[in-house]
Amino acid sequence: MAIEPAYRVWSKASGGGRDGEVVSESGRIDLELRPPAALGGSGEGSNPEELFSAGYSACFLGALRATSKQAGSPVPDDSTVTVTVGIGKDPADGGFGLVVEIETYIPGVDEAKAKELADAAHAFCPYSKATRGNIDHTLTVRV
């Protein structure tokens, strides 16, 4: 199955990659990048994991809203999604790998129903699809 994009955007990194700058096509993102202190950097800029967690959390919340509405159980307006991205050594090849923790907060909804809605969003979200089988995910639900 081929995806026909309805939207495309580019971003350009310059400098040292993790120690440089990233600018988006629109100019809305124009950030200095610095490795986090935990990886030996200054931590004085953003980093790829922070940007990935921001995009993933927004995309997942959109997927949660879309799939829950389609299921006839729209989530409350104050629902949130927090995505934590971790980076560490990959013992398989000595390089680095990522892990993702997705926490959904769906207040006022029965816990079993909230889990069902979060699972449906995880199956639907393009970020989840793109990383499935490549990154370990943990999905938790709070109500």
Results as ranks from 00 to 15, higher is better:
91 P>D: 10
87 I>D: 03
65 R>K: 02
38 A>K: 12
20 G>V: 13
72 G>I: 02
71 A>M: 10
1 M>Q: 14
126 P>K: 02
98 L>C: 07
94 G>Y: 12
126 P>C: 14
8 R>H: 14
116 E>S: 08
63 A>L: 12
130 A>R: 10
113 K>F: 03
11 S>V: 14
142 R>H: 09
134 N>Y: 01
14 S>L: 04
101 E>D: 15
88 G>T: 06
15 G>Q: 11
93 D>I: 00
124 F>R: 03
52 F>Y: 14
109 V>Y: 01
50 E>H: 10
15 G>I: 15
31 L>H: 11
102 I>T: 14
121 A>K: 01
78 D>I: 03
120 A>E: 15
131 T>R: 01
17 G>H: 03
46 S>F: 05
136 D>K: 14
25 E>G: 09
81 V>W: 01
132 R>Y: 04
94 G>K: 12
123 A>E: 11
18 R>A: 12
128 S>F: 08
18 R>Y: 07
95 G>K: 14
73 S>W: 07
40 G>F: 01
131 T>K: 04
118 A>W: 07
102 I>D: 10
128 S>I: 13
13 A>Y: 03
37 A>Y: 01
135 I>E: 05
31 L>K: 07
132 R>V: 12
30 D>E: 12
26 S>V: 09
35 P>W: 09
3 I>F: 03
142 R>Q: 07
13 A>Q: 01
49 E>W: 00
1 M>A: 14
132 R>K: 13
123 A>S: 09
39 L>N: 08
38 A>I: 01
58 A>H: 00
55 G>F: 06
1 M>C: 09
35 P>Q: 14
47 N>A: 04
108 G>W: 07
33 L>D: 12
101 E>Q: 13
35 P>I: 02
132 R>Q: 09
69 K>T: 15
43 G>V: 10
137 H>W: 08
61 L>E: 13
82 T>A: 12
103 E>Y: 00
139 L>A: 05
113 K>S: 05
66 A>Q: 05
57 S>R: 08
120 A>L: 10
65 R>Q: 12
121 A>T: 00
46 S>Y: 06
32 E>K: 15
100 V>A: 15
32 E>N: 13
11 S>Q: 11
7 Y>T: 11
79 S>N: 06
88 G>I: 07
37 A>H: 08
116 E>D: 14
74 P>H: 06
50 E>Q: 15
30 D>V: 00
73 S>D: 14
5 P>A: 12
116 E>N: 05
121 A>Q: 02
3 I>S: 08
105 Y>H: 08
6 A>G: 09
123 A>P: 05
136 D>W: 01
118 A>I: 08
130 A>C: 10
73 S>G: 03
48 P>I: 02
22 V>Q: 05
64 L>M: 10
102 I>N: 11
66 A>F: 02
84 T>P: 11
17 G>Y: 03
19 D>E: 15
57 S>H: 12
108 G>C: 04
21 E>T: 14
20 G>Y: 12
86 G>E: 11
86 G>S: 13
16 G>V: 15
106 I>R: 00
20 G>E: 13
64 L>W: 10
56 Y>Q: 00
26 S>H: 02
142 R>C: 01
37 A>C: 02
67 T>G: 01
31 L>D: 08
